[in-house]
């Protein structure tokens, strides 16, 4: 069951990732990215990260990507034209090299890591909201506070950039 779910959602994630790169229209790319995020959320659940899965859906899929889709719709961005001349040979060579590169990386990861036992759903129960909160507000309190300053700066930056004068 665990393997089945992994293969299903890993497949969806890779398919959506390829679709993100291959689609010419930004809205299609954005939806593919949402597909990747959704399937990754399910893989997080499988790895015992229930809070991080929910945060992934709320923050990434529900806030950041809505902002992307909003901007794409607002600018009415059309599909990418073919202004740049790319020969078919270079295109196929690039694809082949990309696949070869990914295969090489996968091989290296598989070879370097020791044989681990399979992932079992429920084997790691330390990812609950309470655990994450405990760690976040004790050990990682300073980074947490610094992030809030970062967000404040981001808000100010966004407002300044979005003003009419610039």
């Amino acid at each position: 069951m665990t393997a089945l779910i992994f293969f299903l959602f890993a497949g969806i994630a890779v398919f959506c990732g390829i679709s993100l790169v291959a689609q010419t229209h930004p809205i299609a790319s954005a939806l593919s990215l949402i597909g990747v995020m959704g399937s990754l959320a399910i893989l997080y659940l499988q790895l015992g990260g229930e809070f991080i899965a929910a945060a992934q859906m709320i923050v990434y899929a529900g806030a950041i990507m809505v902002l992307f889709v909003f901007v794409i719709m607002l600018l009415n961005a059309g599909a990418e034209g073919t202004s740049l001349r790319v020969s078919a040979f270079a295109k196929y060579l690039g694809m082949f090299l990309l696949v070869a590169f990914l295969g090489l990386i996968s091989f290296i990861i598989q070879a370097m890591l020791p044989r681990t036992e399979g992932v079992v759903f429920g084997a790691f129960k330390g990812g609950t909201t309470a655990d994450v909160g405990m760690k976040l507000f004790t050990v990682y309190l300073l980074p947490f506070e610094v992030t809030s300053v970062l967000i404040l700066i981001a808000i100010l930056g966004a407002i300044v950039l979005a003003r009419k004068e610039i």
């Binding site: 665990t2 992994f6 990386i105 990861i109 598989q110 890591l113 681990t116 399979g118 992932v119």
Partner: peptide, 13 residues
């Protein structure tokens, strides 16, 4: 069940 390295491979891809 799948080993954890497969998750890492997915991440790399």
């Amino acid at each position: 069940s799948v080993p954890t390295s497969w998750y890492l491979i997915l991440s790399a891809i």
